[in-house]
Design a protein around this nucleic acid. Structure first.
Length: 425
RNA sequence: GGAGAGAUGGCUGAGCGGUUGAAAGCACCGGUCUUGAAAACCGGCGUAGGUUUAUCCCUACCCAGGGUUCGAAUCCCUGUCUCUCCGCCA
């Protein structure tokens, strides 16, 4: 959510920045609502004031044994007037609130212009696309032996966009999770947290998935109103919802491994082969809550933490600064990490690292106590994948494949694989 | 699942339907005292919004949402959560 003061004082500037990301703000409609809000609010508060003071007088008069009937007559119509004013005010405020909740964050000044992924800008590159010296297989072919990756059975169990993993492949998948969590907790200063995989709608509103993107979520049947999490970002960031974090505890750095559940509505036909785009996948997430003045530095660091995972795994990647139009709803700036996939001869997204500034914090009232003012102030939130496990597994299979279809295990994973060095078909 | 108790400011904890936005204590901040600290004493100390900006003033908020009333932290209804006991259970 954007600062309402900003929209009152400089709405043209806000509208211009939103347009950069393809969001058209109806300035006139907003201003009209805002004028009405002000009128109705002042009128309502005046009536409330009148009611309060007259009621007090009635109390006093009654205490002194006076006849209060004339005073009661005086306020007889006040209640109805007040109710009418209040309901009009509520109506306008609901409309304004709907607008606010549907308005995306403002892109930072450093965000490249553009409306589609074609306008994203490569910031840096690490390593070179892997040269195998033979025709590379993709992960579906590589996973076929021993039913390492078994898509047919997953279809039977559930449907498309799921996978069953077996044997050493399942272990490698698990090894990746352990490796990433250990790296973030021991070298990057994150605290590991375990969180619910279902959340309520308040949490989803807090991080920005609701109200606009409900079709991307799996909602549970029944009365609970719960949803399966689309990312650990939701439960982990909402830890700070309605909290005031002491300055000494800042910055807060959490890492968490969770499954992620996404309906992938609107992506029919895209990435249908293999496990690039699944309804259920694992992810190790990093989340930070920082002082506002630190958030841009924190974004660079957090991106570096995700990059470190790829570097330790020896996977070539590039860092892309997303253009304004390609960023997610809540982000002020996003770096995508794209890993090289020999099977596709392409870089594919494997991590997304964003600074949300105070956008999520305002939605969820996440604050810290600023020692300079002594007051609670909105903090800044960030998160990034570190990394998406399924896609990392794909990247390892494709980059570490050998001509006979066997897979070499990267050095850093050996201790999680019980010393197993090669996956042999 | 059954029975009962409860939810008040950072924490503990008062609160007859009418100057209670809320006693008291703790914590915290400023000051006096002290070589310094502690103690003692004095003062301050919630959040959000509106108006204004020197300030003042006004409104809302005592779990949430409804209701009764001229007036609700206080009464009624619904929901959520917490605790205790019983039952069941990975």
């Amino acid at each position: 959510m954007l600062d309402s003061k900003l929209l009152r004082t400089d709405i043209e500037d806000v509208a211009r920045k939103l347009l950069a990301r393809g969001y058209q703000l109806d300035v006139n409609a907003f201003n009209e609502l805002e004028v009405r809000r002000k009128e109705l609010q002042m009128k309502t508060q005046e009536l409330q004031n009148e009611r309060n003071s007259k009621s007090k007088n009635i109390g006093k008069a009654k205490a002194q044994g006076e006849n209060i009937q004339p005073l009661l007559d005086e306020v007889s119509t006040l209640g109805d007037e007040l109710d009418a004013a209040k309901s009009k005010l509520d109506e306008v405020q609901d409309k304004l609130n709907d607008i606010f909740m549907a308005m995306p964050n403002l892109p930072h000044e450093s965000v490249p212009a553009g409306l589609s992924e074609d306008d994203n800008v490569e910031v840096r590159k690490w390593g070179e696309p892997t040269q195998l010296g033979f025709e590379p297989k993709d992960h579906v072919e590589l996973g076929a032996p021993n039913q390492w990756l078994d898509f047919e059975t997953a279809v039977k169990l559930t449907g498309s966009r799921f996978v069953v993993m077996r044997g050493e492949m399942a272990r490698l998948h698990r090894a990746l999770i352990q490796f990433m969590l250990d790296l973030h907790t021991t070298e990057h200063g994150y605290q590991e947290v375990y969180v619910p995989y279902m959340v309520n709608s308040d949490s989803l509103r807090g991080t920005g998935q609701l109200p606009k993107f409900e079709e991307d979520l799996f909602a549970l049947k029944g009365e609970s109103g719960y949803y399966l999490i689309p990312t650990a970002e939701v439960p982990v960031t909402n830890i700070a919802r309605d909290e005031i974090i002491p300055a000494d505890n800042m910055p807060v750095r959490y890492t968490s491994h969770t499954p992620c559940f996404r309906s992938e509505a609107g992506s029919y036909g895209r990435d249908t082969r293999g496990m690039i785009r699944q309804h259920q996948f694992e992810k190790v997430e990093m989340v930070q809550m920082v002082k506002p003045e630190d958030s841009w530095q924190a974004l660079e660091e957090l991106t570096g933490h995700a990059e470190n995972v790829l570097q330790k795994l020896g996977l070539p990647y590039r860092v892309m600064a997303l253009c304004a139009g390609d960023m997610g709803f809540s982000a002020a700036k996003t770096y995508d990490l794209e890993v090289w996939l020999p099977g596709q001869q392409a870089y594919r997204e494997i991590s997304s690292c964003s600074n949300f500034t105070d956008f999520q914090a305002r939605r969820m009232s996440a604050r810290w106590r600023n020692p300079e003012t002594g007051k609670p102030e909105l903090l800044h939130t960030l998160n990034g994948s570190g990394l998406a496990i399924g896609r990392t597994l794909v990247a390892i299979l494709e980059n570490y494949q050998r001509q006979d279809g066997s897979i070499r295990i990267p050095e850093v994973l050996l201790k999680y694989m019980g010393g197993l060095e090669i996956l042999q078909p």
